[in-house]
């Protein structure tokens, strides 16, 4: 035990700020929300115990709950693979050893920092509006654009495009992964006359699999939690016609516009379970496609 601590003391020391934050700031509210999920609580009067009513209502009667799930799953299914593909493509471009690579990395990372900001969400609304830049561009080719955000069948895609554009953090991780692939493998492949696409599928992708997996899990979790951009772009309501009713937007509305903190807490726990299940599935499948270099197969 003593030895364990002596060996790991430095690690825990570095973790301290996070641990303190977690135990003091996060754990309490998390446990409270578990309790509140079984109550009716309007945030002003005291919570009243209602047992499983919130969960029963959610699954049996709440149409908007199912709509929110539909929107969120559609988004996750589209945004995560596309963002990862984008991140990998850019990472491979940057892996070519360009001059002033640091600058390019910074430039490509920028959207990810800005993307979560309110300003970009507002910019997005202006870009994809009926008189927006996108339509002005299309008009050059004689195409009459639509209001991309105000048309329910296309609004979700504007969010997916925004997600693709924010490829920065998985890109950096991919870049690090690419750097660790031994160059001599490619040299050997070149000598054998292996084509570039084949090199990608036979060398790059298999050796990058652990990194892909890591990014996949992180991005899935991230995508389920998408909030601020959806909130701004849909004016906070999930409009038009609930086509941007992301789960978190719905949760926020229930809690802070309609004073149903109890119900919103229940929604939060259902989201947690959903994310946990999906992540568990990802882990379960990973043993079929993720191989670690130091592993024997």
């Amino acid at each position: 035990m003593r030895r364990f601590f002596r060996r790991n003391a430095a690690g825990y020391l570095f973790l301290t700020p996070w641990l303190v934050g977690f135990f003091l700031l996060a754990l309490g509210p998390i446990l409270a929300s578990l309790y509140l999920g079984f109550t009716r609580y309007d945030m002003v009067s005291d919570p009243r115990w209602v047992g499983l009513d919130n969960y029963r209502y959610m699954f049996e009667r709440d149409r908007r709950f199912w709509k929110a799930l539909e929107v969120t799953f559609t988004y996750v299914a589209l945004a995560v693979p596309l963002r990862l593909a984008m991140a990998l493509a850019v990472a491979m471009l940057l892996d070519k050893g360009l001059r002033s690579i640091g600058m390019y990395r910074a430039i490509f990372y920028l959207p990810s920092i800005l993307g979560a900001s309110i300003a970009i969400a507002i910019l997005w609304r202006a870009m994809f509006g009926i008189d927006g830049v996108v339509n002005q561009f299309l008009a050059l080719f004689g195409i009459q654009g639509i209001g991309w955000i105000t048309t329910p069948s296309t609004s979700i895609y504007t969010m997916v495009v925004l997600a693709m554009w924010q490829f920065g953090s998985p890109m950096l991780i991919f870049l690090a992964g690419l750097r660790s692939i031994p160059r001599d493998l490619y040299e050997a492949a070149e000598i054998d006359g292996t084509s570039r696409p084949r090199q990608f599928f036979r060398i790059t992708l298999p050796l990058l699999a652990p990194v892909v997996f890591f990014n996949l899990v992180l991005q899935i979790i991230e995508a389920f939690k998408t909030f601020s951009s959806a909130f701004i772009i849909s004016n906070g309501t999930g409009a038009p016609a609930d086509s941007l009713l992301f789960y978190t937007v719905y949760l926020f509305n229930e809690a802070f516009r309609f004073f149903r903190m109890g119900y919103a807490s229940a929604l939060a726990w259902v989201l947690l379970v959903i994310i946990a299940v999906i992540t568990a599935i990802a882990f379960a499948t990973s043993k079929y496609w993720v191989h670690y270099e130091n592993e024997r197969d």
């Binding site: 509006g129 009926i130 639509i146 209001g147 105000t150 048309t151 004016n235 309501t237 409009a239 038009p240 016609a241």
Partner: peptide
């Protein structure tokens, strides 16, 4: 038209 109309508030 609908584009202008469905923007709430």
């Amino acid at each position: 038209g609908p584009d202008a109309t469905v923007q709430l508030d």
